[in-house]
């Protein structure tokens, strides 16, 4: 398990600054194929920044990021989807003035063959029947939970190996939180690997094979999800209780 090639994603000593403000300090993180890996931490800890660095929209100053053994540290963001990485942004951002179908089509922008795009759209619709029902509506008219499904569906259009999700349950009703977590488990069963950031730390740890707790841009704890869930320090600092 410790061999280099057994890691799907490998982050080493990652520093990221926005302008003159450094927000990540030497982050290390590994994602093994087939696992769910979570990043937890308080607001502003730098969780989103870690995944933004992976997908090329935050600048990595130092350190390295490898995906499937290949260095992607400063790969331009628009080249990331072709590698097999799908991304679901924080705040379930969809193209509000485009239809549900068009949103999904954008997820497969790299495919120039219309037939393959339609097949991918149909595949996502079969996974999310609710989206199919609303396919002709503008995404701005969907409920929050539906928009999150759409954002996930869009990230699945190119059939990625690694799906990166930023706060997938944030701001959703309890019913949709359950639905989304069920979907995430489903993605894992399909053999996909998930890296996610979650505010709902207890819930995230309970489904995670591994998890990383960040504090002020540094690694603070990392272990299996279950071990962190039982760790008293983690409980005190991140789970809001004993």
């Amino acid at each position: 398990m410790s061999g280099n090639n057994s890691k799907l994603l490998k982050i080493r000593a990652l520093d990221v600054s926005y302008g003159s403000v450094q927000v990540l300090f030497g982050i290390d993180l590994d994602v093994t194929p087939g696992e769910i890996v979570s990043i937890i931490g308080p607001n502003g800890a730098g969780k989103s920044t870690v995944i933004k660095a992976v997908i090329g929209i935050a600048p990595a100053q130092r350190g390295s990021i490898h995906f499937k053994g290949r260095e992607i540290t400063r790969q331009p963001a628009h080249e990331i989807p072709a590698l097999g990485i799908g991304y679901v942004p924080q705040g379930r951002i969809v193209f509000a003035e485009m239809t549900v179908t068009e949103n999904l089509e954008m997820g497969a922008f790299l495919l120039k063959d219309g037939k393959r795009v339609r097949d991918a759209v149909d595949r996502v619709f079969s996974e999310f029947p609710r989206l199919h029902e609303r396919r002709k509506q503008n995404a701005g008219r969907l409920s929050g939970g539906e928009q999150q499904m759409l954002a996930i569906g869009r990230a699945l259009m190119l059939d990625p190996e690694l799906v990166i999700l930023d706060e997938p349950s944030l701001g959703l009703s309890p019913k949709y939180v359950d639905i989304i977590f069920e979907k995430l488990m489903g993605l894992k069963e399909q053999g996909r690997t998930l890296l996610m950031v979650e505010q709902n730390a207890a819930r995230a740890l309970s489904v995670s094979d591994h998890a990383y707790a960040l504090e002020l841009g540094k690694n603070r704890f990392s272990d299996t999800g279950q071990a962190l869930l039982n760790n008293t320090d983690v409980r005190k600092m991140y789970l809001g209780g004993a």
């Binding site: 997908i55 929209i57 963001a77 628009h78 080249e79 990331i80 989807p81 072709a82 991304y87 942004p89 951002i93 193209f95 509000a96 003035e97 485009m98 068009e102 089509e105 954008m106 997820g107 922008f109 790299l110 120039k112 869009r154 190119l158």
Partner: peptide, 21 residues
């Protein structure tokens, strides 16, 4: 296809970028 991408960039350039645009 390109026309839709133009609309996507108009709405959210960042998200369009990570769609591979």
């Amino acid at each position: 296809r390109i026309g839709k991408a133009i609309r996507a960039v108009a709405e959210h350039a960042d998200v369009a970028l990570i769609c591979g645009i």
